[in-house]
Design a protein around this nucleic acid. Structure first.
Length: 476
DNA sequence: CTATGGCACGGATT
DNA sequence: AATCCGTGCCATAG
């Protein structure tokens, strides 16, 4: 999906601006920062003062939460404050002017960019577009749906070149992306683990994947052992190795639901919101520190000097006056937009954090169901506002996991969790029908078919395969 | 025959 | 208007 940046279409028409106001919300932080930097460069009326002020009380701040407004209370209420990254927008003098011309928007790093960066150095000029094309063809699991021959034909490039590029992609982090299917992906990943696992183990794992993949998916280890003429114990070991260290969907690893070794993988991008745990003293109530990243360090405002200078303009400078007036109007609008955005984000996070506190602290499984519309109601804004505020934003949990903010909204989660609990609790494997019954006894009425889906989402094998040491299944 | 997975169709949500 | 989700029907495996 290509990012759309909003262009310089901010012509002064006051009513149309209202629509633009909301548009600012949906921009993710980096994109907003880009537009703001652009604006700062070309609008003299807009000014960035280096100091940061508490959005609530207006006091100057150096860093972190406002000590007075968001003081660490002992009632356990989360502390929510706005913050900025220092990375971009060094905002002075000469460097600034360079930037104005050769400005290249910072976009959030997508999986594609993340990979491209790693292999860029190894690509020739001709290979670059090939790499770009391949990366765009990856599906959501990070797998390549198209054959290399087709790609070569389509791009009119030599097959060998295409395959070379693909090889580079496949060996970049996360290893295995760009494979033409789960099996190939797993094999690539095995190769990449050369140093860490014993030769025998890897060989067996490879054999299982190649010759008995479907059996593995069904967790039928006994049959695998027979077919490969290997001792069952060894096969179990290998299967375990596969399940623990490999994923058939490398592109998913990062979004994974905690089962995947995603904690070790580098984050593809930084989050828009950061939650940390602040332990105060020894008594338990640790405070949640919610840091909302806003674009640009400092505070936007309309340049007071310019505003003053405008008063002194004589009427014969009508042209200039008009021009400046527009600039000022536009600058005012933008600062208002940003303030609005910050305010909404703060209130939104307040609700979100309070509602999902357990999830933040205890991880998945403690998620409570929540819909955008109820938040919109309690917040008193339109639903679409929430949608925009949530869309394409991510949040870093105290555990270090980065998840999309939309994860906080899930209407069916409570039921899914009940399913998990029921399955974990029951001694004998229950069929989906029985689970459905059990649920209805709890007052939750869902169809049998739905239970099956939840089971799958949770990565739990069907009842008949689920006997004793049901390991974590390979296929989601 | 029973238990599941696949496809696809409304209906709700965003 | 686009997307997501629950569900019913049917094919398939055991």
């Amino acid at each position: 999906m290509l990012r759309h940046h909003i262009s310089h279409e901010l012509r002064p028409q006051t009513t149309a601006h209202l629509a633009q106001t909301m548009a600012f919300l949906q921009l993710n932080t980096l994109e907003l920062e880009n537009t703001l930097i652009n604006e700062l460069n070309q609008n003299p009326a807009l000014e960035l003062v280096e100091e940061r002020r508490c959005p609530t009380c207006g006091k100057k701040l150096s860093q972190g939460p406002c000590p007075t407004c968001a003081r660490l209370t002992d009632d356990g209420a989360p502390v929510i404050y706005l913050s900025t990254r220092q990375s971009f927008g060094s905002h002075d003098g000469a460097a600034e002017e360079d930037r104005a011309d050769s400005y290249e928007p910072h976009t959030r790093e997508s999986l594609e960019e993340f990979i491209l960066k790693q292999i860029a150095a190894d690509l020739t000029r001709e290979e670059r577009p090939i790499a770009a094309y391949i990366l765009l063809q990856l599906d959501e699991d990070g797998l390549l749906t198209e054959e290399t021959v087709e790609i070569a034909a389509y791009l009119r490039a030599p097959l060998a070149t295409v395959e070379r590029v693909l090889g580079l992609i496949q060996h970049a982090e996360p290893v295995g992306v760009g494979a033409r299917g789960p099996i190939e992906s797993l094999l690539i990943q095995i190769e990449a683990l050369k140093g860490t696992a014993s030769e025998n183990l890897r060989n067996l794992a490879r054999a299982i994947i190649v010759d008995a993949f479907d059996l593995l998916a069904r967790n039928d280890l006994r049959q695998i052992a027979r077919q490969l003429r290997s001792p069952l114990a060894t096969v179990e070991l290998a299967a375990r190795f596969i399940q623990r260290n490999l994923t058939p969907y490398p592109g998913r690893a990062y979004w994974g639901d905690g089962k995947t070794p995603s904690e070790d993988l580098p984050a593809y991008h930084e989050a828009d919101v950061n939650i940390t745990l602040q332990r105060r003293g020894t008594e338990t109530p640790a405070t949640l520190m919610v840091e909302i990243f806003t674009p640009l360090a400092g505070t936007l405002r309309v340049n007071p000097t310019l505003r003053a200078a405008m008063q002194e303009l004589t009427d014969q400078d009508a042209g200039k006056q008009e021009k400046w007036a527009q600039a000022v109007e536009r600058a005012t609008l933008i600062t208002k937009c940003v303030q609005q955005r910050n305010h909404t984000m703060r209130r939104l996070m307040e609700i979100l954090v309070n509602h999902q506190k357990d999830f933040i602290l205890n991880g998945d499984g403690s998620l409570k169901p929540l819909t955008r519309s109820v938040v919109a109601k309690t917040l008193g804004v339109h639903e679409s506002t929430i949608s925009r505020a949530v869309a394409s934003k991510t949040i870093a949990l105290p555990s270090g996991r980065i998840v999309p903010l939309s994860k906080f909204f899930d209407r069916s989660l409570s039921v899914r969790d009940r399913v998990r609990q029921i399955i974990e609790a029951e001694p004998r494997p229950m069929t989906d029908d029985e689970i459905a019954d059990a649920l209805s006894r709890d007052g939750i009425d869902v169809a049998r078919r739905t239970v099956a889906k939840y089971r799958n989402m949770l990565g739990i094998l069907p009842a008949n395969l689920r006997h004793r040491p049901a390991g974590v299944p390979v296929v989601a």
